[in-house]
Design a binder for these strands. Structure first.
Length: 398
RNA sequence: GGGCAGGUACCCAAGUGGCCAAAGGGGGCAGACUGUAAAUCUGCUGGCGUGAUGCCUUCGGAGGUUCGAAUCCUUCCCUGCCCA
């Protein structure tokens, strides 16, 4: 029994950044059969990306060991939004929008999680009922100095940027969630560490067994610099089309290959070491990245789709051929300026932009670069337009 | 409540009467090269116009002064700091 637990612990420790504390988890595993593993879900946008998937995958590991995933939907904060109207990351959402988002979310979440061992909680169901005196009670358990410990708050404070009072309260509300669902352990990205600790502290204040805190490293986004996030637009959604997913993974900087293998695939530790060695020995990073892309597409789609995506990628970017499927636009005009056509087809947003792209040599008609901004297009048969490396459109008379 | 400092394009940030569609950086896009939608280098980055020294819209909002305003004045809104 004890030996099993040690094995389980070392399994669970893979890809973990902060773990507070291993001893407590060991003790809980010995004492309880089923742990309640909490994960907070933000409902502001409908896409789950590979970064969040790192955490979800960890949660799945707990489920596979028989534990319960307790997903706390942050609909309360989403509904309140940001009164200052400044923060784009917290737009105010209606019940309908939240429901709509949740539908899409569930579909994606269960690509990773096990439905049978998942419970959903909407935190508005308790937060909306809190009375003023109860809120004060919660607030009285924590100090401003401790709230200011949070890096993000401290930075803003030092830089004379606004910190709104409700933002100060959010961590406490989030912590209160842990109390309401009696979490044994809470998971999150490493940037959540501080928030999760508040949960731990608050639980102690309410005379509950404090939750264990476990965070996963943040996945770096496709830009190679910032954490993967919707707001930085550097993310790869787990529901993206295989081709798109494949391409996006190919576009990550080479230095991130191992990082992604580690956090986004089921490759064993030894295999990853092996890849690392190959890279050092001068193996073409392109090939390993293609392997990575296949791994990930297989995980969220299928092996077949992954292979298709690879073929397509090679066709378009390696051999510079046309993609197999090109969207079609039927043009009523038979004789039109190229600039106008580019705008009409939505390939480019404005005529100025179209002229720029033509001047830059980024526009091709049937494989031929066009550099005359006054170019007239005669549409009497199929024409394939290419803008930049990735935009293709077939234009037919219609 | 009082004093002071600020609000500029997708973001950060310079500009303090005409040479401002507005420096610089980031991001984005395009090209070259390549190993790929990697890295690096180069260019572009408000809209419209037949190509440059043309027009229209944009420097928190609304008015005003001026031949001319991001820049000056009035007023309102917002943020930070200090004092109370």
């Amino acid at each position: 029994m004890v030996k099993d637990i040690i094995e389980i612990l070392s399994f669970l420790k893979r890809n973990v950044k902060d773990f507070l504390t291993e001893e407590e988890l060991k003790e809980k595993l010995l004492r309880k059969k089923v742990l309640r593993v909490k994960l907070g879900i933000d409902v502001t946008g409908p896409d789950i990306h590979l970064g969040f998937a790192v955490v979800l995958r960890k949660l799945r590991e707990f489920q596979d060991l028989g534990h319960t995933a307790c997903l706390v939907i942050g609909d309360f904060t989403a509904k309140i939004g940001d009164p200052s109207g400044r923060s784009k990351t917290r737009p105010k959402l209606s019940d309908e929008e939240i429901k709509e988002n949740m539908k899409k979310y569930e579909r994606q979440i269960f690509k990773i999680l096990d439905k049978k061992r998942t419970e959903f909680y909407y935190n508005s169901s308790w937060h909306s009922k809190l009375k003023g005196d109860e809120i004060i009670e919660i607030a009285s358990k924590y100090t401003v100095a401790r709230l200011l410990e949070r890096d993000d708050f401290m930075k803003r404070y030092k830089n004379n940027l606004p910190i709104y009072l409700h933002e100060f309260l959010y961590p406490l509300f989030q912590a209160y969630d842990s109390i309401m669902i009696k979490a044994d352990i809470e998971l999150g990205g490493e940037d959540q560490y501080w928030n999760l600790l508040v949960g731990r502290e608050l639980m102690k204040e309410f005379n509950l067994e404090p939750q264990i805190v476990m965070t996963m490293p943040l996945l770096i986004g496709t830009d190679g610099k910032l954490k993967m996030s919707k707001s930085y637009n550097n993310y790869i959604g787990i529901e993206e089309e295989p081709k798109e997913m494949f391409g996006k993974i190919m576009s990550i900087p080479d230095e991130l290959i191992i990082h992604y293998f580690q956090l986004c695939t089921n490759r064993r530790e030894e295999e990853i070491r092996e890849f690392e060695r190959k890279l050092k020995e001068g193996e073409n990073p392109r090939d390993l990245k293609a392997q990575l892309a296949k791994d990930i597409v297989t995980l969220y789609h299928s092996k077949e789709k992954a292979e298709e995506a690879e073929e397509e990628f090679n066709r378009v970017f390696k051999y510079k051929e046309l993609p197999t499927e090109i969207p079609v636009f039927y043009s009523k005009e038979r004789n039109i300026r190229l600039v106008d056509l580019l705008v009409d087809t939505n390939l480019l947003p404005s005529k100025s932009e179209a002229k720029r792209k033509i001047k830059e040599g980024g526009v091709y008609l049937n494989g031929e670069r066009i550099s005359d901004i006054d170019y007239q297009v005669i549409i009497n048969k199929e024409i394939v337009i290419k803008v930049g490396k990735r935009k293709f459109l077939k234009v037919l008379p219609g």
